[in-house]
Every structure is written in structure tokens, then in C-alpha cells.
Simulated assay, not measured.
Amino acid sequence: MANSRSAKKRVRASERKRIMNQIAKSKFKTAVKKALSAAENGEEDLQAKLSEAFSKIDKAAKSGAIHKNQAARRKSRLIKKIRLLQQTK
């Protein structure tokens, strides 16, 4: 356990940041799942859900929850999966 005041403060700060990162990741993962399910079911609001997923991914990258290259990779893979789903239908 931390002994100095500054170390105790760092523990508190890192815990707050961990929770905020966890929230950001959860939000974009949920948005991605909604976009994929919309693509599978052929829903009309696919474009809106895809835009929402991209927005959540970008916000997670902006806040530092994920790296910017990881955000780009996830967006690329998402659009690739959606295009593949649309072609098979």
C-alpha cells in the first residue's frame, strides 16, 4: 500500500481514471454491437448507428482510453465487417 501523501493521491487518481476509461470502452463496445446487429438485421438506421459507433470510438481515443491507432483499426474492421454482411444479403 502507498505510504506517502503523493503516492496515496496517485492511487486515488489512477482509480478515477481507470473507471472513466472503463466507461468509455464500454460505451463504444456497446455502440459497435448495435451497429453490427443493425447490419445483420438490415435495419434502416444502420448509418446512424455506424456514425454513433465511430463517434464513441473517437471519444475513447481522444480521452486516452484507447490509442488513436487502435481507434482507427477498430473503425476499419467495423466498416469491413458491415460491408461483408451487406454483400452476403
Rank of each mutant, 00 (worst) to 15 (best):
M1D: 12
A2E: 13
N3E: 12
S4D: 05
R5Y: 09
R5S: 07
S6E: 13
A7L: 08
V11D: 08
R12N: 02
A13I: 06
E15F: 08
R16M: 07
R18V: 03
R18F: 07
R18N: 05
I19G: 05
I19H: 11
I19F: 06
M20C: 02
N21E: 05
Q22W: 04
I23F: 12
I23G: 03
I23E: 14
A24R: 12
A24H: 09
K25F: 07
S26M: 13
K27C: 08
K27V: 10
F28M: 11
F28S: 00
F28W: 12
F28A: 03
T30M: 11
V32D: 01
V32I: 15
V32Y: 01
V32S: 05
K33L: 13
K33G: 15
K34R: 14
A35E: 03
S37N: 11
S37G: 02
A38Q: 02
A38G: 09
A39H: 00
E40N: 07
E40Q: 11
E40C: 04
G42A: 14
E43V: 08
D45Q: 15
D45K: 15
L46S: 05
L46R: 05
Q47I: 14
A48V: 13
S51W: 08
A53F: 02
F54K: 09
F54Q: 03
S55F: 06
K56V: 01
I57W: 00
A60F: 01
A60R: 10
A60W: 07
A60C: 11
S63A: 14
S63N: 14
H67L: 09
N69E: 09
N69Y: 04
Q70G: 04
Q70A: 13
A71G: 09
A71V: 11
R73A: 14
R73L: 14
R74E: 13
R74N: 10
K75M: 11
S76L: 08
S76W: 03
R77I: 05
R77A: 14
L78Q: 03
I79A: 00
I79W: 00
R83M: 06
R83W: 03
L84K: 07
L85D: 01
L85T: 03
Q87A: 07
T88K: 04
